[in-house]
């Protein structure tokens, strides 16, 4: 394995881990639930994405043939992360989980019906 490849893999691994940790720091520090919701939807998806890229590069140059199946994890997370965030936000709105009543949207006061 050449030095450039190793540098690339190392870079993506550390960047990915850093983004994952930043998301967790967000959920540790932020005061209310809706702000905490921003952590896992953004930082962790790109964090895992960068690690998957690192893994794909590593196995492509260090194994048997090209390896791209890590892309599937990234793809899957990019599809599911907004969905689970939306579900959590919806559940929170339904439970009136508001520490800051002034930020309430008027729509959440009425019943929003059975559609999901």
């Amino acid at each position: 394995m050449t030095f450039v490849i190793e540098l690339l893999v190392s870079f993506f691994l550390v960047v990915g881990a850093f983004f994952a940790m930043a998301g967790s720091i967000g959920s540790f520090r932020l005061p209310d639930f809706f702000s905490r919701l921003h952590g896992p939807t953004k930082s962790t998806t790109l964090g895992v994405g960068a690690m998957a890229i690192a893994s794909a590069i590593y196995f492509s140059f260090h194994g048997e043939g090209i390896s791209f199946h890590e892309v599937l994890i990234t793809l899957f997370l990019f599809i599911t992360a907004p969905v689970s965030a939306h579900f959590l936000a919806k559940a929170a709105l339904h439970q009136r989980l508001h520490e800051n009543k002034a930020a309430l949207p008027p729509e959440s006061e009425k019943e929003t019906g059975p559609h999901v």
Binding site: L13, G16, A17, A20, G23, S24, S27, F33, R36, L37, G39, P40, T44, T45, G47, V48, M51, A52, A54, S55, E70, I73, L77, A81, S84, L88, A91, A92, Q95, L97
Partner: peptide, 20 residues
């Protein structure tokens, strides 16, 4: 809901750990 969110984040970080 905070706990569910924390668990969700833990799943995603566990995926990163497995890749590593």
């Amino acid at each position: 809901l905070d706990r569910i969110l924390a668990l969700d984040t833990m799943y995603i970080d566990a995926i990163a750990m497995f890749i590593l």
